[in-house]
């Protein structure tokens, strides 16, 4: 078998990149390179046509309101259709925050803008007046991936899944889709939408590999990915998980050392 080539389509890289979302593309790229495989990353922006036969994996990050409106307009029509067809065909997709919102059915912003989505996910988002900000831990319910996901969320949109919407997982700590029903993200075939920034994939290497495997399986005969040494990533995952689960605010003890060092009290 020839060495696989992973073809990534980075959607709107200059418009939809907030809170380090591009780290996900770095993670996908490096994890293939370490396996000796080639990666091609193509950025597609406003007005660029999307040919679904040319990519294995799609990525779209989050963005601010104005950028979201521009992207929403661009995705309406053919381009959105092409993206949906790609996912129906089994391509992998990861969308974060603002990108996730635009791939649902609609997004009603807090300024009253009604942005139609491409209905890839059975999900609707309504802008709220407070932001959900903080570290998150999620119990992942993906087929073929056990375990937890860690990240940082920062969104005012409240997303509710419809009857066909399958969540990515359940919130262990944090807000997730809407802060009420305990669900986080949405999955359809090999497409994932989530609120987790972080960047998400570097600290959740098994999710990165889940996406890579599914993206490549369409064209290559792969049972599993060759394993990598993920000791550092796993340690970072554990540290982040510990940080989220630890209850209450971080207390800082008085600095006794300072007293002693001043020489007046000890």
């Amino acid at each position: 078998m020839t060495a696989p080539v992973l073809r990534i389509c980075h959607l709107y890289p200059e418009l939809m990149n907030i809170y380090g979302d591009r780290g996900n593309v770095i993670a996908l790229t490096m994890r293939c390179r370490w396996r000796g495989w080639e990666v091609q990353v193509t950025g597609l922006s406003l007005g660029d046509p999307l040919d679904p036969s040319r990519y294995d994996l799609y990525f779209m990050g989050g963005g601010q309101d104005r950028e979201q409106m521009m992207v929403c307009e661009d995705l309406a029509g053919e381009k959105g259709e092409a993206l949906r067809a790609a996912v129906e065909d089994g391509a992998a997709l990861l969308s974060i925050c603002g990108g996730y919102q635009l791939l649902g059915k609609r997004f009603l912003t807090c300024t009253g803008e009604d942005l139609p989505g491409i209905s890839l996910f059975d999900a609707e988002t309504v802008g709220g007046d407070t932001r959900f900000i903080g570290n998150v831990a999620v119990r992942c319910r993906l087929e073929g991936m056990e375990g937890t996901l860690v990240g940082f969320e920062n969104h005012s949109g409240r997303t509710r899944l419809g009857p066909a919407g399958k969540p990515l997982g359940e919130v262990i700590k944090g807000y997730g889709n809407n802060g009420e029903d305990g669900s986080e993200g949405c999955v359809y075939r090999h497409a994932i939408g989530t609120y987790l920034h972080g960047s998400l994939l570097p600290k959740n290497p098994s999710l990165a590999d889940w996406l890579i495997l599914r993206a490549l399986r369409r064209r290559y005969d792969l049972e599993q990915l060759p394993p990598l040494d993920d000791a550092l990533e796993e340690e970072a995952h554990r540290a982040a998980l510990y940080m989220v689960l630890r209850k209450g605010p971080r207390l800082r003890l008085p600095r006794w050392g300072g007293w002693r060092a001043s020489g007046r009290f000890g």
Binding site: M30, K203, L232, E233, A236, A239, A240
Partner: peptide, 23 residues
């Protein structure tokens, strides 16, 4: 730092090999 591991992972993905990295 409080996020030492995040920093280390970032440096690993930036191409710093493990022999030069300490957490």
């Amino acid at each position: 730092g409080t996020r030492a591991w995040d920093m280390a992972v970032r440096m690993k993905y930036a191409g710093l090999d493990g022999t030069r990295l300490e957490v």
